[in-house]
């Protein structure tokens, strides 16, 4: 036995010495890097906009974007501005569709590349028509900002912002018309998060609610109070379908909890009885 142990030990020490520099895939993939966080792809936009060479007024862009709703959903610089972020020489190439800073007149269609429904509502709205006619008036950036764009919320409609151009009365009426539906959507989002945290798969409901929400948000941009009031019932009906489904999940979770608690009680009773039996003197 001692000989076997000795031979194994020698083999082990020799192996460790011989393969002492063995690295390759193992280090690359497993040990030297932590298995946490996405490995960031090389991005020359971020690199330049964070470097000392950049003009001070453009230095904050990368940080603003990182804190944005776009960044959270992996919408990167080139998705809006074009160019090739992986190649420094083509990062700002017009041949790769690069547009640095769009002019105010270009802004709605710049954002509208992705937000198709919204840009249509906007151009048909009073805001859009005024902007098209005079080149003045609110566009996307006026309300949503540019790089630090946050998740759209009904409170973007507020007196401080709207009164920059006109009185708040009409906007207030519109906000009131939107309020209940928006509140319900926010509540359902919170409910879906709770269900997810309890391990319930609510992908279909999440998609449905997102779709209703996206459609509803396009309506914000019409700034047409009558249209909003007329369509509120449609949205309520759609939301109630999702709501019903969520309520059923909660009912089901409660049933599961009660059911497993019932089984737990049976076993607890059985356990107590058995414990008393084991304490009963034998023979």
């Amino acid at each position: 036995m001692k000989r076997i142990v000795l031979v194994l030990l020698m083999l082990f020490i020799t192996g460790s010495v011989v393969f002492g520099d063995y690295r390759e895939e193992f280090e690359k993939g497993f040990l030297t890097k932590t298995w946490s966080g996405e490995q960031p792809a090389e991005n020359f936009c971020i690199e330049c906009h964070s470097s000392d060479r950049m003009k001070p007024e453009l230095l904050t862009i990368a940080e603003e974007w990182k804190a944005s709703w776009h960044a959270q959903h992996k919408i990167a610089c080139h998705d809006c501005h074009g160019g090739d972020p992986k190649d420094a020489s083509l990062a700002m190439s017009p041949h790769r569709g690069f547009v640095g800073k769009p002019t105010p007149a270009e802004v709605p269609d710049f954002c509208g590349k992705c937000h198709l429904g919204i840009v249509k509502q906007y151009w048909d709205s009073g805001h859009g028509k005024a902007f098209r006619a005079s080149g003045k008036g609110p566009h996307c950036i006026t309300c949503h900002g540019s790089h630090n764009t946050q998740k759209a919320h009904i409170d973007i409609i507020n007196e401080q912002l709207c009164s920059k151009c006109h009185s708040y009365d009409r906007a207030r009426t519109m906000k009131q018309a939107l309020f209940l539906t928006e509140k319900k959507i926010t509540e359902l989002e919170a409910d879906l998060d709770r269900l997810k945290s309890e391990g319930v798969f609510v992908d279909d409901e999440t998609k449905n609610l997102f779709s209703v929400q996206a459609e509803f948000r396009t309506l914000f941009h019409s700034i047409d109070v009558d249209l909003i009031k007329n369509r509120t019932d449609d949205f309520s009906a759609k939301i109630s379908v999702v709501d019903g489904s969520i309520k059923n999940y909660f009912k089901e979770l409660q049933y599961r909890r009660n059911f497993s608690a019932f089984i737990l009680l049976i076993f607890a009773g059985l356990g107590t009885t058995l414990y008393l039996f084991t304490k009963t003197p034998k023979e």
Binding site: R257, S260, A261, F267, L270, G271, F277, T278
Partner: peptide, 22 residues
Amino acid sequence: QKQALMVVGYFIVMFAIITFAP
């Protein structure tokens, strides 16, 4: 009896987790 008690204990732990920390 001891075995049965321990097996029941196993079930109790299992269903306690399923009930209170699903």
